[in-house]
Design a binder for these strands. Structure first.
Length: 377
RNA sequence: GGACGGGUGGGUGAGUGGCUAAAACCAGCAGACUGUAAAUCUGCCGCUCCUUGCGGGCUACGGAGGUUCGAAUCCUCCCCCGUCCA
């Protein structure tokens, strides 16, 4: 079954309710994709992810290429089979590593030369090879290689990165066309809009990328340190220029209290390491704000992390026990916290979708924000 | 009884005349985290005062004296602990 997107409803705020179809299942949008960079959402088993209702995971081209190697994964029947994940997978292209591994890479018009963070060896990633790797992995959604830049960045730098991203998108498009039949069209390919925090560049980038006709469109290069208002502003500039009948993916966001803001600007998909990384660091998201579980105030607290939460962790364990696990540096602490946080995000998305359906996302969002910023609990 | 070795801030432990309120690590307290080089990183961690500053005062390296402009560091005595010998 080829990739497709159904737009079910757009509410007054601009929020969209939709459904994405992939060879590995349906994804209700707006959707949150937990990040499983190296073939695992850290701390959670695939079984747990399925039970939590995760419909799509994110994996990373660069990381799989380095380890275990995309040919190894191809040989084992593709990424889904390799990591025993029957549902959908989106693979990021390595564009984010251009940003996060800035000290270990050199960007040229041709591609990105990386020095492996694992063993120092040199590797060259191009739009073509990024696509080839993702083809080998067999992900449901592939991302074109892009140049994600830091914030703040000059207009000149942002312009150059956007131009390069456009050129790379064209090359990726061509490479996919050349593959044509061998791919069978079962893997979708998304283009990525860049342009830093410059509205003009963003608009131009959006038009150029849309002209290449991708299966979906991502807004990249945001949430790299700029204020939330600016992230919103850029999203607001770009989203209306993207075709309504294609999914829109805001890459790398966001904080729980910010997600509805993106949805109201027409975003259908998001991914973020925040729920899992914060969990491992002892920061738990709750309906009343963040809980830093290592804090001494929880030492004798028999209550669950979030009394309003329906997850398995809150149904069973106390704050005191969770704190103990973290203080004692026990792995289970990270596991339970990750479970809770991913549940929190998925539950949040369910509520957001429900609110769109009922037409009261604005009210839901403002109520949510006031609760989440209420302070520590 | 004798011979060595040793007693440092909550713990381990560096420091052998001034740059030492005393390294480092641990523990403790707080914070950060946004397409994951992150089970990571950052700050605080004797008491006290204020004009909160590379600020002032006080207390501190087993105890008591002493030498010195200045001592955790040198000397004397004492008290503990460890190992070995009687």
């Amino acid at each position: 079954m080829p990739f497709s997107f159904e737009l079910l409803k757009t509410d007054r705020s601009g929020a969209r309710l939709g459904r994405m179809h992939t060879p590995h299942g349906v994804i209700d949008t707006p959707a949150f994709m937990p990040v499983g960079t190296a073939g695992t959402v850290k701390g959670l088993t695939q079984q747990a992810l399925e039970e939590l209702g995760v419909q799509i995971l994110l994996g990373n081209t660069y990381h799989f290429y380095l380890r275990p190697g995309h040919e190894v994964i191809r040989g084992l029947g593709g990424l889904h089979k390799f990591m025993a994940w029957p549902r959908a997978i989106l693979t990021d292209s390595g564009g984010y590593q251009v940003f996060s591994l800035a000290d270990l890479r050199k960007v040229t018009d041709e591609g990105v030369k990386f020095r492996s963070h694992l063993d120092g060896s040199e590797h060259f990633l191009t739009p073509e090879s990024a696509l080839e790797i993702q083809t080998a992995l067999g992900s449901d959604i592939m991302m074109v290689l892009d140049e994600c830049i830091e914030h703040p960045a000059s207009h000149e730098r942002a312009e150059k990165a956007a131009a390069r991203t456009l050129d790379w998108a064209k090359r990726a498009r061509r490479a996919l066309a050349a593959k044509g039949a061998s791919n069978g069209g079962s893997q979708a390919l998304f283009g990525i809009v860049q342009g830093g925090t410059y509205a003009g560049l963003r608009r131009a980038s959006a038009r150029d990328i849309v002209a290449l006709d991708f299966d979906g469109y991502a807004v990249g290069g945001l949430a790299v340190g700029e204020p939330h208002a600016l992230t919103c502003e850029m999203t607001e500039v770009v989203a209306p220029l993207l075709p309504a009948d294609k999914p829109r993916y805001l890459m790398g966001v966001g904080k729980p209290e910010d997600i509805a803001d993106y949805v109201m600007r027409g975003i259908d998909m998001m991914d973020c390491v925040l729920p899992t990384r914060s969990a491992r660091h002892g920061c738990l998201f709750t309906s009343a704000g963040r809980v830093l579980i290592r804090n001494a105030r929880h030492a004798n607290d028999p209550r669950p992390v979030d009394e309003a939460c329906s997850c398995a962790v809150c149904g069973r364990y106390s704050r005191a026990y969770l704190r103990h696990l973290f203080i004692a540096n026990e792995i289970l602490g990270a596991v339970l916290a990750s479970h809770h946080n991913v549940h929190f995000y998925l539950d949040l998305m369910r509520r957001i979708r429900q609110s769109i359906e009922f037409g009261d996302l604005v009210g839901f969002s403002s109520e949510l924000k006031s609760r989440l910023v209420a302070g520590p609990c």
